[in-house]
Design a protein around this nucleic acid. Structure first.
Lengths: 228, 228
DNA sequence: CAAAACCGATAGTAATACTATTAAATTTGC
DNA sequence: GCAAATTTAATAGTATTACTATCGGTTTTG
């Protein structure tokens, strides 16, 4: 996987940043350390001033890359979903059987995240934790419709559409392909949050991913089963 | 329904407030108008100062009821889930068939909310919109584990447990009852959010509730069907 | 009817979420 | 290799937020 993607750059919608953080050393330090700092103190307490102190730089320099911390969160989320999309596309590449493809897609979308050494300045395991803890704050805002018009969520939407198409390929008669695709992608984050903070109502054991639950859910709902 | 519950008071964990807002006229105005103001400007821009201006009272008076706006949101959410729990309990009361009970429970938990005249100072339709837009902010915080220890989410957890038990009653062999219960309850809010803000990936029509999707999902997953 | 509780008003604080300006350092283009 | 352009760090400043503290006046209650 790493080999295949070694010359890969994740492309993010230019509206999200003022200056591309991939274009400079400071930019990469902003991204790298914002992930660590948000994980450490939470997005609500995260400020550009604190990030500046952490990277030995100035608040005002960070404002030249991102308009505000909300856009930085949108950037990090876009990066995560784009990275996930690549993993999904490579996983199902050259596979013909629609059921096997769907099975692999659910695997990619619901499994526990591991480190990908292709991107040196991004810790995907920590980033995934941020997505679980903070992603919904990127769209649960009053400006969501404006942000959406700017294309802030287009990568995420493309991923949902991909899964919806895999669901339809697997069962052309199923009526709720979009609802089911959203259930798997968003639900998987929620199940992992519950595992960490609401143990008494979580169906998962401490190190368990919700993968088996979602495979069972999807294949029973579609009335099919993947030929292993 | 209204008649049956006419002498009902929704009981909220005392840790959530400093002074019970149901105990005074000012308290009720705080609750009533916080719902309207949060709906209007969003929870992020909502402040006690603005609420004070709206109800012709003072910021400092509101602080005597709630420690901060976060606790007020937890209060509103607890009220909503408690109200939903009552609806669920009454809906399945005196029904023996486990499949019918589960069917009715899904109906209550996923349908579009309508006004309940039992509670004069609370507009349940607007409150539901707040729950859809803001509920996850009440637990996606760094202090979630402390809040959880204080019992801030106990009503919500009780509701999930109720649904999980109905699922188990309907199919004793199903292995993921908790995961499925969470999928229905939290997922239903998410599907309704998508309908309003992410039309291109929502499987729902403008006035459609996700009820049919979830009934199909649950009964196919459990390999049973409700005898209508 | 006195004590207690409640409420509204004012004042004050540290932190947040920025914007503006300037000067030094670095990069680049010829 | 040097001038011009760009980038960065530092400082200062603003409006707003999220509170806390205090203090009368009013209402409730025992």
């Amino acid at each position: 996987m790493q080999k295949l993607l070694s010359n890969l750059k994740i492309t993010i919608n230019e509206n999200i940043f003022l200056k591309d953080p991939e274009s400079s050393d400071l930019g990469k330090r902003i991204v790298e350390n914002s992930i660590l700092l948000i994980d450490e103190i939470g997005f609500d307490d995260f400020t550009f001033k604190k990030l500046g102190a952490k990277i030995g730089s100035n608040e005002s320099s960070i404002y030249r890359y991102f308009e505000n911390k909300h856009n930085l969160l949108v950037y990090l989320a876009s990066w995560y979903w784009s990275w996930t999309e690549y993993q999904l596309v490579f996983a199902i590449n050259n596979i013909a059987d629609p059921l096997k493809k769907l099975d692999l897609a659910i695997e990619v979308l619901t499994k526990t995240t591991t480190l990908d050494s292709t991107f040196k300045h991004i810790d995907e395991v920590v980033l995934k934790r941020i997505i679980i803890n903070e992603y919904s704050k990127s769209y649960l805002t009053k400006q969501v419709d404006l942000d959406n018009d700017e294309g802030y969520f287009s990568i995420y939407k493309r991923l949902v559409i991909r899964l919806k198409e895999l669901i339809q390929e697997a069962n052309k008669d199923y009526k709720y392909a979009f609802c089911l695709a959203n259930t798997v992608i968003e639900g998987s984050l929620h199940q992992q949050y519950l595992k960490d903070h609401f143990k008494s109502i979580s169906g998962l054991k401490p190190n368990e991913a919700p993968t088996e639950f979602y495979k069972d859910l999807v294949f029973n709902t579609l009335n099919i089963s993947p030929n292993e």
